[in-house]
């Protein structure tokens, strides 16, 4: 589903070259729930922006759903983002000017969907996250957990092949974080491929598989035993 080989990303300024990713490899199969972990500044976010086609990469190869995305122009990348990828951000990233319904509608609009189908999908997605009754509310009127659930509904509405989550519970308290995580696990069980970036080991432990990044390179998890420290967390996944 998502396969990166020898991928690199270099940020160049006039004085220095910084490798955000260096010879990075990852292969996420269809239906997997993968957590990408690592300390701050390790290149997690860079990985996510490249995986989500928000940025281009410098070297290597990236196959998304079997398609090489390196040569695509801006419009083609927009189309892929719109149809194949759903984003869940740490800061929710709802558009404050639009109400819940209109926020969920945004990706469907760009897909040029008919009004009836849009409406159906929006209601389905909102019901899925348990917020159908809040369709007319504005983001500012919702709690953080509710906002993130709207963001998830927005990501789900387009039936993407791949869900990319960036610290989805980072801005939430424990209670809300748990409900959001449970929602993600439900979605995974229904067959979605999820790649989640996080620095929270507890969260990462709930994924099927962990990929650890340090200094822009993936590190074999076998050498990092402390991530297996909590078997109860791992057990809850099954």
């Amino acid at each position: 589903m998502l396969k990166m080989t020898h991928l690199s990303k270099v940020y160049r300024t006039e004085v220095v070259e910084t490798y955000a990713l260096r010879d990075f490899n990852i292969d996420v199969k269809e239906g997997e729930f993968v957590a990408v972990t690592g300390p701050s500044g390790s290149g997690k976010t860079t990985f996510l922006t490249i995986a989500g086609l928000l940025e281009t990469f410098t070297g290597g190869e990236y196959l998304l759903d079997g398609t090489d995305v390196s040569g695509l122009n801006d419009n083609a990348r927009s189309k892929i983002r719109n149809e194949k990828i759903g984003f869940i951000f740490q800061a929710f990233n709802l558009i404050p000017d639009l109400n819940v319904h209109d926020n969920v509608e945004v990706p469907l609009r760009y897909r040029g969907m008919k009004a009836a189908e849009r409406k159906q999908r929006i209601m389905d997605a909102l019901e899925r996250v348990g917020l159908a009754s809040r369709a007319k509310h504005y983001p500012a009127e919702l709690s953080g957990g509710q906002q993130q659930r709207v963001a998830i509904a927005r990501a789900l509405a387009g039936s993407p092949r791949l869900l990319l989550a960036d610290e989805p519970t980072g801005n939430l308290d424990t209670q809300m974080a748990r409900s959001v995580l449970e929602l993600l696990e439900d979605i995974h069980r229904e067959g979605a491929t999820i790649v989640m970036v996080t620095h929270d080991p507890e969260l990462a432990a709930r994924a099927q598989r962990n990929v650890h990044i340090i200094d822009g390179q993936e590190v074999d998890l076998a050498e990092e035993p402390r991530f297996h420290a909590d078997p109860s967390a791992a057990g809850s996944m099954a």
């Binding site: 419009n75 927009s78 719109n82 149809e83 990706p107």
Partner: peptide
């Protein structure tokens, strides 16, 4: 003011033309 919002729209698949 809306550059973030525009970024989100772009992330959600809006083209430059949109």
């Amino acid at each position: 003011q809306r550059s973030k919002q525009i970024g989100i729209r772009r992330a959600l698949g809006a083209t430059r033309g949109d």
